[in-house]
């Protein structure tokens, strides 16, 4: 198997004529209007007064998350930004049900979350793709665990691999793919279980700029095509503004919601758009203080200006 992902052009398959992504956006002012299944008034995801305390080994307690209240509408794209160590990844784990809050509840469709469920799929920062399975088998995994019949699984594997433009790589193993391709496998694996809510934990942090831009486009397109609710965690403010309908800024330790910003910029957006840069600037100023606090905590007081 001699496959060189580096020379594999992600760009060429991206421009395949079959995709109808960006044209489906309503351009103009205001957030894009999505073809959503009945936008009801109850929020899709509702975080009620969530706190999380870690116990240290010497009996000390660390408050990681403090009274988080957030609501996410069906089909909404919410981005959470904050300095590293603000507990934003932990929050995703709580919503995914992989961890329980010390206080407060996570509600999805007004139902209490008390464990993992395939209505909410988390895409980990490290992806967690299974190296012992092929691309297709990775995508199949969630469906197999949820007893989806085989013919249906085959059909969905085909559909979602096409959606992320990886059809020709279905029989490859994960280590044979480039970083951007792995990202897309993780996305396909998550989408194949057809979750209502997609939780993404800094998924594009480790990618080079071109690949990241491309995946932004693809994510936006897939979001539009599938109408999922997405909660996207990042430390990159510009990324958050580029993708989100709304951006929530978190404070550094303990993590609290400092402020929320509605992003009313027309889609499709681009990372280099002046409007995106301007909004990002504004949010970044707000975030600066928190970043400084996180740097102080990490490096001691040496870096203080």
């Amino acid at each position: 198997m001699t496959l060189n992902p580096a020379t594999q052009s992600v760009f060429s398959d991206h421009r395949s004529p079959a995709r109808g992504g960006t044209t489906r956006w309503k351009s103009g002012a205001g957030p894009a209007v999505l073809p959503l299944p009945a936008a009801s008034s109850t929020p899709k995801v509702s975080l009620k007064d969530i706190s999380l305390t870690y116990k240290g080994n010497n009996g000390s307690r660390l408050l990681a998350l403090d009274s988080i209240n957030l609501q996410v509408k069906t089909g909404e794209f919410l981005c959470i930004v904050g300095p590293s160590g603000c507990g934003k990844s932990t929050l995703l784990h709580l919503i995914a049900g992989l961890q329980q809050p010390s206080h407060g509840h996570v509600l999805v469709d007004d139902k209490l979350v008390d464990g993992p469920g395939t209505d909410r799929i988390l895409i980990f920062q490290e992806l967690g793709l299974f190296p012992w399975l092929t691309v297709a088998q990775n995508v199949e995994f969630g469906m197999k665990m949820n007893h989806v019949p085989k013919p249906e699984r085959q059909e969905k594997i085909r559909y979602y691999l096409r959606l992320v433009h990886l059809s020709q790589f279905q029989n490859n193993y994960i280590h044979q793919l480039s970083g951007g391709m792995r990202q897309r496998v993780a996305l396909a694996r998550a989408l194949a279980t057809e979750p209502d809510v997609l939780l993404m934990d800094e998924p594009f942090a480790a990618l080079d700029a071109q690949t990241r831009d491309l995946l932004h486009d693809e994510l936006e397109r897939i979001w539009a095509e599938t109408g999922r609710t997405i909660i996207f965690v990042t430390h990159n403010v510009r990324e958050a503004v580029r993708l989100g309908d709304r951006v929530a800024v978190f404070t550094f330790r303990p993590g609290r919601v400092k402020r929320e910003y509605d992003i009313d910029l027309p889609r499709p957006r681009h990372l280099e758009d002046v409007t995106v840069a301007k909004s990002a600037r504004e949010i970044l100023d707000d975030l600066r203080e928190e970043i400084n606090r996180s740097l102080e905590a990490e490096y001691g007081f040496e870096v203080r200006p």
Binding site: T118, I121, G128, W132, F141, G142, M145, R189, T193
Partner: peptide, 23 residues
């Protein structure tokens, strides 16, 4: 991460062991 990813995708108990932890 494998265990978390497995649970996240709906694998439980024996299936988690057989399809994730063992491999």
């Amino acid at each position: 991460i494998y265990k978390m990813a497995g649970r996240n995708l709906g694998a439980r108990r024996f299936r988690l062991f057989w399809h994730v932890l063992l491999p």
